[in-house]
Amino acid sequence: MLFVVKRLLLTIPILFLVSIMTFSLIHMIPGDPARVILGQEATPEAYQALRTELGLDQPIVQQYFNWVGKVLRGDLGMSITDHVPVSDLILQRLPATIELTIGTFIFALIIAIPTGILAAVRRNTWIDYTSSFLALGGMSIPNFWLAMMVIIYFTVEHTWFPSSGYVPFFEDPKANLMAMVLPCIATGLRESAVLMRMLRSSLLEVVNMDFVRTAKAKGLNEVKTILGHVLRNALIPVVTTSGLMVAGLLGGLVITESIFSIPGFGRLIVESVFKRDYVTVQGAILVSALLVVVVNLLVDLLYAVIDPRIKSGKGAD
């Protein structure tokens, strides 16, 4: 219980710092948003009027407190360039990103679970070395390059899958899934490599534990041992790792979504950075950090539930 309380309390200063960083980061960007919005045809009066409207002429501290006050009420502000609430923009973009995330994990697990098991079972054989080499390879491929290569192969040379043309799932499920295949491969390969390595080492750890030896000593069939005891226990750290991978995944999606023209959260960030839409960048970055903080919190709490050693309060670091 002490651990849970401490962990929750720790979240507060993190959130505070996250808000300060988000706010100040974006306000140091060169390039005046009023200038960007007005474009090439601006008159000085219109420019001044817009600055006032956006509150850009207020002192920065004032701007921060106004912003935090609104954020606490769930208001992320109005997009500078699009004139719609940022929260709407983000909500509009989340479904595609969530779908992509799920697809990526499915793809990653399909690859990682069998290869991870195989590498652990045949450890220190050429199978193990080959698969750990391939895993390192998977972790080393730049995802934007992989994206281009799958486009060249699956779209340009063979017209098997479209390279873009996202439609919401409920509008046209088939077209939606077709459009998701390549992006999921492009982001999922790296994640599968990470998961595979994690699964392999955690399998090896569990295999050496007492209860597995006992099970074996009792004469249980090896396949049953693996599937029944080892895998279940070994999957716990894998699942929690998946949770911790959310941050990295969000970063990767920034690029994949741009290449495959998927209207997701990551592309929203890139677009807004390039449009100098301060308010949207702020909101989106804040939300991405919040997502990570919350997921980390859940993972830690989950861990505390599963592994009683942590509850003592030692695990906070």
Binding site: L10, P13, I14, L17, V18, M21, L25, I26, M28, I29, P30, A247, G248, L249, L250, G251, G252, V254, I255, G266, I269, V270, V273, V281, I285, S288, A289, L290, V292, V293, N296
Partner: peptide, 21 residues
């Protein structure tokens, strides 16, 4: 806590934002 906060930002997004700044 600053470290925690910094690590809450996805790495590439943080780098993107900083280099945009």
């Amino acid at each position: 806590r600053i470290i925690d906060a910094m690590q809450a930002f996805p790495f590439l997004i943080l780098a993107l934002a900083i280099s945009a700044v």
